[in-house]
Amino acid sequence: MKNIKICLVSDTVFDINGVSRFIQDFSKQALKFEKDFVVLTSTKKVPEEEFENIININPIFRMKMPFYKSLDLVFPNFFKIKEEIKRLNPDLLHISTPGTVGLSALICAKLLKIPVVGIYHTDFPAYLYKNTKKSFVKKGTIKFLKFFYSPYKALFCRSEEYFKTLKEQLNFEDEELYLLKAGIDIKSFDSSFKDNSIWEKYKVDKSRFKVLYVGRVSLEKNVHKLLAFWQKAELKNSQLILVGDKELKEQISDPTITYLGKRRGEELSKIYASSDCFIFPSTTDTLGQVVMEALSSGLPAIVTNKGGPKTFVTEKFGYILDINSFDEVKKALEELSKKDEKYYQKSKKAYEYMRDKSISHSFLDFWQKNEEILSRLKA
Rank of each mutant, 00 (worst) to 15 (best):
V116D: 04
F278S: 03
A109T: 11
L145W: 08
S42D: 13
K134G: 06
V243M: 02
L8E: 05
I119S: 12
T141F: 05
S275K: 00
R263D: 09
L226T: 00
F147E: 10
D365E: 11
P98K: 03
Q251W: 10
V243Q: 00
F51V: 01
E341A: 11
K133I: 09
I23N: 08
L299M: 05
I184G: 03
F75I: 15
L8A: 07
L240D: 00
Y343F: 13
F136I: 14
T258E: 10
H224V: 01
Y351T: 06
G261I: 07
I241R: 01
A126P: 06
K262L: 15
L31T: 11
K331C: 11
L235M: 09
R216V: 09
P151E: 05
K187W: 08
L93F: 06
K348H: 09
K86R: 15
Q239F: 04
I186C: 05
E371F: 04
V46F: 09
L170D: 04
S360Y: 04
V211R: 03
G183K: 00
D15I: 08
G308K: 08
S362A: 15
M63N: 11
P47I: 00
L180P: 01
K270A: 04
G244D: 01
L128Y: 08
L219Q: 13
I85A: 08
M65T: 15
K221R: 04
A228M: 13
L112K: 13
K310Y: 12
D36K: 11
L235W: 03
E220S: 03
L145V: 07
T132Q: 01
K139A: 11
L299N: 01
K369A: 01
R208A: 09
I57Q: 02
K138Q: 13
E34M: 07
K110P: 07
I302N: 06
E34T: 09
Y129I: 09
E160Y: 13
I257L: 03
E49D: 15
M354K: 02
D72G: 11
V38N: 08
S159P: 02
E160N: 14
A301I: 07
F312I: 14
L128S: 01
L333T: 02
G18W: 04
E161T: 15
K139R: 12
F37D: 01
R355A: 15
